[in-house]
Computed example of a mutant assay.
Amino acid sequence: MIQDTWYTITPLDPATYAISEYGHWEKVHSFLLIGKEKAVLIDTGLGISKMKPITDQLTHKPIDVVTTHVHTDHIGGHGEYERIYVHAGDRSWLAGGIQGLSIEQIRRDISRDITIPTPPDFDPSRYTPYQGEPTGLLEDGDRIELGDRSLQVLHTPGHSPGHLCFFDETNGYLFTGDLLYDQTPVYAFYPSTNPTDLVSSLERIAGIPEVTRIFGSHNTLGLSPTLLEEVKRAAHFLKEHDLVHFGTGIHRFNGFSVQF
């Protein structure tokens, strides 16, 4: 087992690892999926501590970073890796900065409610999110082949224009980024979000067959696929009651909530 003062590394199976940041209020998870020929790293966390020394211990295979979306807590370690992929809808945010978030707000958010010691070189007053051009763009329906396992790319906008989910068809793992997780609301209340798209994206993932486990990017690590039935009911309820627009607040369901 890898011991680290900032990250918690949890094996999901012999070739899949969650790299979690439980000491920060956002409780962010990144995921390393190792195949026969290469590995994929889904997101790179907050950037409070270096992630590459962790992934270097877990695999010697070449690593492609695939981005669920371009928010600070998902791209923090992007600069540590050579090959970075993102959807076109979020490309401009990766290259030029995240829309609607000032650096002052980002620094306040990155530094609050931390419950364990941070690395000595972490200075929130100088924290700057990664910016750069991606190696390539991912599109809905793409497949990422790792040699002995295949990931399906799903464009699931709403939380951001280019938000992506990834379905590990080999194992039935659904990686939902910030589209679906528990404990705190999934949100689409910023001007850069879209409530209608979010609900459509929830409906889409709820229809994926043969999901064995759901892995959101925050809070509880690993959710039952039975949650997808509740997602279907929730989407129907929200549309039926004309709640899918800005300003309708937090809507709580069995196992998750959304905020518009």
Results as ranks from 00 to 15, higher is better:
M1A: 11
Q3C: 14
Q3I: 14
Q3K: 13
Q3W: 12
D4W: 08
T8W: 12
I9K: 04
T10Q: 12
T10I: 09
L12G: 03
P14N: 00
T16V: 02
Y17K: 06
I19P: 03
I19L: 12
H24Y: 07
W25M: 00
V28Y: 06
V28L: 13
V28I: 13
H29F: 03
S30I: 01
L33A: 05
L33D: 08
A39W: 00
L41T: 03
L41Q: 07
L46A: 03
G47P: 07
G47Q: 03
I48S: 01
K50L: 11
M51F: 03
K52Q: 11
K52L: 07
P53L: 05
L58A: 03
L58S: 01
K61T: 02
V65R: 02
V65M: 04
V65H: 02
T67V: 08
T68A: 07
T72I: 13
G77F: 07
H78R: 10
H78W: 11
E80H: 09
E82S: 13
E82R: 11
R83H: 15
I84F: 10
Y85T: 11
V86P: 04
A88L: 14
G89H: 10
G89I: 08
R91A: 14
W93A: 12
G96D: 13
G100C: 08
E104Q: 14
D109P: 07
I110N: 05
S111V: 09
S111A: 12
I116N: 10
T118K: 05
F122I: 03
D123C: 14
D123E: 13
S125V: 15
T128I: 12
Y130P: 11
E133Q: 12
G136W: 11
L137K: 03
E139C: 14
D140N: 08
E145D: 13
L146P: 08
D148I: 10
L151P: 05
L154G: 04
H155Q: 05
H155L: 08
P157V: 02
P157E: 00
G158E: 03
G158Q: 01
S160E: 10
L164M: 11
C165A: 11
F166E: 00
N171V: 00
G172W: 09
G172P: 00
G172Y: 04
F175G: 04
Y181E: 05
Y181V: 01
P185K: 02
P185G: 01
V186L: 05
T193H: 09
V199G: 00
S200K: 15
S201T: 07
R204Y: 06
P209Q: 03
E210N: 15
E210A: 13
T212S: 13
R213S: 10
N219S: 15
T220C: 11
P225M: 08
T226M: 15
A234V: 09
H236D: 15
K239C: 14
H241I: 14
H245N: 14
T248R: 09
G249P: 00
H251N: 06
F253Y: 07
F253Q: 01
N254G: 06
S257V: 00
V258N: 03
F260Q: 06
F260K: 04
